[in-house]
Design a protein around this nucleic acid. Structure first.
Lengths: 379, 379
DNA sequence: GAAAGTTTGTTCGTAAGCTTTACTAACAAA
DNA sequence: TTTGTTAGTAAAGCTTACGAACAAACTTTC
C-alpha cells in the first residue's frame, strides 16, 4: 500500500468546506471548461469534468439564469443520437477594464472582452503626478474607460508597480509616491463593480499563462524603468511573506563591484538591466561590436542573478517582457547561456527563455485575467 | 465593491469537488485541531472551526469509531454549564516509522509516536552499498523498526537524498546509485502500510514547520556531504518542474572563479560549503583567525547564492541544518550580513536566519510529518 | 422503410452533508 | 429554589450530487 505525498498535501486546509462552497467550485469548473474549449454540450462538459449530466444540467441552468452562459444552437455534425445543444460563455454579456500603471510616464488602460481582446484603448500622461494626484489620474482613466464600455463591466483590473497586498492596497510604489494607497477599495467604492489591484509583474505572468504559451510554473522578468519579476508556481502567483515577491531589481549581482544604484548599494540588477541605463550605455558605444558586448554583459548579469532562483525552484520556463530591441537578441542569448553554465543542466534540460508574445499590452491583459479569475474562477 | 484577489485565486480548480470530499476535508480539520491543541471539547472544536456543534459531534463520532479519537474525561475547571467532555487524538493508537537516508555512510531510522517523539532508533552502515544492495538495506532497516513498534504502524516515511517524484520514485540519487528506484511502491508492497518517500531537505523543512518554530514560508538549507534546500511556501513543499526544487548545491556562486567541482563546473556552492571541503580547509588553517576567515567566506558565499532567492520569493525565514560547530557562528553571521547587504532591507526587515532546533533527527521527524499529513491530513 | 441502436437532456426519487431549531443534562450564582 | 449558561443530542429541512428511467432525435442496419 502506498500513498501519494502530493495527495496527502492536498488535504492541507485551514477552513471548513461547506457543500455550498463545493457547489461554487463546480460552477467555476463548468465556466472554466467553457472558457477554454467553448461550444460544448452539457454531455461534453459532464464527460470532461467527471460530474454527471444531471448535475451539469443543473449547474448550467443556474449559469444561464445568471446570464453567464448561453445556448448557441445545435451541433451540426452527423452522428447517431439526439443532437447536442451547444453552450458557450456569454462572451458578449460583459466587458473588462484593464489598467497598466507600470509604464514610465503614462497610465494606459483598455476595455477588453472576456477573451482578453482589446476593444478600446486610453492613455493619460502621468506628468510627474504623485500621491493623491496620481490616484486621481488613475480613477479618471478608469472612468473614461467605463464610459467607453458598450456592455456591463464584469470588473476592473489594475496592474501597479511596487508592492501590493492581497486587499489591493499599494503598500509601496516610490515612483508614484504611494505608500499604503488603498486603490482597490477606492475604485471599488467609486465605480460599484469588483476591482482587483495587484503587482504589474504578477499580472503579466498571469497574462502569459492565460493568453501566451506559458505553462503553470514560470517566472516572468519585466524590464523597463526598473526590473521586476512575477512568479507563477502551480499556476498560482507567489506573493511572498511581505507581498514583495519578485522585487529582484535591487538584488546585488556578482562579486565584482558594479555601478552605484539609487538604492545606495552597488551592482544591483537594475544598474545592469534597466532600460535607461542600458540605453545610455548603448548611446555611448562606438561600434556595433561594442553594443553587442554591452547587451551580452547585461544578459550575463541577469543569468547570474537568476541561476540560484532557477536552481532553487527548479524552474523550466522564463519569459522576458520589455523592449524587444534590447532584450531579444544578444541579451537573451547571454542569459540562457549563463543560466545553463551555472546550473545543473540535467535538471533543467528543457529550460527555456523567450520573449513574451503579448507585447506591450501584457499588463492590461493580465489585469483582465485577474478579473476573470476573481469573478468567474476562470483562467 | 471590491474583490480579494487571493479569494479569487483560491477558486482555481482542476477537478470536481464532491460532498464526500468536503466531508473528508472537515474530518481532517477536526483531526488537525485536536492534533495541535489537544484536549478539547466538541464545542471547542466547533467554535474554532466554524462548523456547528452538531456537525462536529457527527464527525467526532465517526473518528471515534475509526479509533482515531478518544474521549479523555471531563474538564475540571469550575464554570457554569454542563461540563465538557474532552477529546484528543488517540495518540497511543499508532506509531510511525521514519527513515533518514541522507547521512553520509549510514541509514538511520526510528519509531516515533504521533507527536514526533522518538521511541526507538536503529542504524545500519551503508558500507558503500549502491543500487539494489542499498534498497535491500533500506528495506531491512524498515523491517527491523516495524518489528520494534509496539503499536500498529500508521505509515512509513522516508527522506531520501536526490530527486524524488510525487509517487515516491527516487529519480536520481547518485551517491546511492539509484535512478528511477520506486522505493515507495516497493516498501508499500513489502510492508502493507502506507509509505511516503520524499526528498530529505523537503522532509526537514516540514519537520521544522511542524515541530520547530518555522512559519509557513521558509527555506531550509541542509549542509552535509552535499548542500540542498527544502522550500515551504504557504506551508506546502515546493517540488519544481522536474521535482528537483532545492537542488542548489551545484549552482555557481559569484563571478570570481572558485574551486573545481565534481560536476565539472567551477565555484559551485558545494565547493564552498559541503562539510568535507570545509573540514579539509579548516584542517589546513594554522590560526584561529584563519579558521574564522574560512567560515566567514563560506557564509558569504551562501549569502551570495541565497540573495536572489530571498529577493525573488520575499522569504522572511531561513533555517540551517547541519553540523552546528561549522554552521552556527561566523558562517551564519556572514550569511545573514551578506543577505542584508545584497537585498532590499525594507522588504526583509524581519529576515531571520537561524539553526534548526531539531538537530540530527530532523529528517526522520520530517518523514513522520509526511505520514501524518498523508494519513490524517494533519501537520 | 421499419427496426434497432446511440446519444442527449430531463424528470424523479434517493443518499449524504450541513444547518437550524429545539430539547435535555448538568453545572454556577444568587 | 430560581435563574442563566454551557454541552451535547435529536429531529426536521435544505442543498447537492447521484442513479434509474425515459422521451426526443438522430444514424445505422436489415
Amino acid at each position: 500500500m502506498t500513498t501519494g505525498f502530493a495527495a496527502g498535501r492536498a488535504l492541507r486546509l485551514t477552513t471548513k468546506v461547506l457543500p455550498e462552497q463545493a457547489r461554487g467550485h463546480n460552477r467555476s469548473l463548468v465556466l472554466q471548461t467553457l472558457y477554454r474549449a467553448g461550444q460544448q454540450s452539457r454531455a461534453d462538459i459532464a464527460r470532461e469534468t467527471g460530474l454527471t449530466r444531471v448535475t451539469i444540467s443543473d449547474l448550467v441552468a443556474e449559469l444561464i439564469v445568471d446570464g453567464l452562459v448561453v445556448e448557441t444552437g445545435q451541433r451540426e455534425d452527423a452522428r447517431p443520437g439526439k443532437p447536442a445543444t451547444l453552450l458557450d460563455l456569454n462572451r458578449s454579456a460583459f466587458q473588462i477594464v484593464g489598467i497598466d500603471l507600470s509604464q514610465y510616464g503614462v497610465f494606459r488602460g483598455a476595455v477588453l472582452d472576456l477573451d482578453g481582446q482589446i476593444l478600446h484603448r486610453s492613455e493619460v500622461a502621468v506628468a510627474g503626478s504623485t500621491g493623491a494626484d496620481a490616484t486621481a489620474k488613475v480613477l479618471a482613466i478608469i472612468a473614461s474607460l467605463v464610459a467607453e464600455a458598450t456592455l456591463p463591466i464584469l470588473g476592473i483590473g489594475v496592474g501597479s508597480p511596487g508592492v501590493v497586498d492581497l486587499a489591493g492596497v499599494v503598500l509601496s510604489a516610490p515612483n508614484l509616491g504611494w505608500s499604503g494607497e488603498p486603490l482597490q477599495a477606492l475604485a471599488g467604492e467609486r465605480f460599484g463593480v469588483p476591482v482587483v489591484v495587484a503587482n504589474d509583474a504578477n499580472a503579466a505572468a498571469l497574462a502569459e499563462h492565460s493568453f501566451g504559451d506559458a505553462d503553470s510554473d514560470m517566472m516572468l522578468i519585466k524590464v523597463g524603468h526598473g526590473v521586476g519579476a512575477g512568479l507563477l508556481l502551480n499556476g498560482n502567483p507567489l506573493f511572498g511573506s511581505r507581498f514583495a515577491a519578485g522585487e529582484i531589481g535591487h538584488v546585488v549581482v556578482g562579486t565584482d563591484g558594479g555601478l552605484d544604484c539609487v538604492c545606495g548599494k552597488r551592482g544591483c540588477l537594475e544598474t545592469w538591466l534597466a532600460t535607461p541605463r542600458l540605453e545610455r550605455a548603448l548611446a555611448g558605444a562606438t561600434t556595433p561590436q561594442r553594443k553587442t558586448d554591452i547587451l551580452r554583459e547585461a544578459g550575463q548579469r541577469l543569468g547570474i542573478a537568476l541561476a540560484p532562483v532557477v536552481g532553487a525552484l527548479n524552474l523550466a520556463e522564463i519569459v522576458l517582457s520589455g523592449p524587444t530591441e534590447l532584450l531579444d537578441g544578444p541579451l537573451a542569448h547571454a542569459t540562457i547561456e549563463t543560466l545553463r553554465a551555472r546550473t545543473m543542466a540535467e535538471f533543467h534540460g528543457d529550460l527555456s527563455l523567450r520573449m513574451t508574445t503579448l507585447g506591450e499590452d501584457i499588463v492590461m491583459r493580465g489585469a483582465a485575467v485577474m478579473v476573470l479569475s476573481a469573478q468567474l474562477g476562470v483562467s
